[in-house]
């Protein structure tokens, strides 16, 4: 299925959770912030939160420098 990931259209396997999408995208940042269709997703929800066709998802790596 197709989604918009960080502004780029991607084709991903069907029936993915946010956790699976993070693994698929090889995101290794433990502080990762996930936004799905304009809504912030809690890390505790990654395991069972589904990704749907045409979702717009942003992976945001928090910046901790100053």
């Amino acid at each position: 299925m197709r989604i918009q990931l960080n502004g780029i259209e991607e084709t991903i396997p069907k029936e993915m959770t946010i956790k699976a999408l993070i693994e698929w995208a090889k995101e290794g940042d433990p502080h990762l912030i996930v936004e799905q269709n304009g809504k912030y997703i809690y890390p505790s929800a990654y395991d069972n939160h589904p990704v749907f066709e045409n979702d717009t998802i942003e992976f945001i790596n928090p910046n901790l420098g100053g």
Binding site: I60, N61, P62, N63, L64, G65, G66
Partner: peptide
């Protein structure tokens, strides 16, 4: 709050 890294900021 603000944080920066590389060319990025939040």
């Amino acid at each position: 709050y603000a944080g920066v890294r590389g060319f990025d900021a939040m």
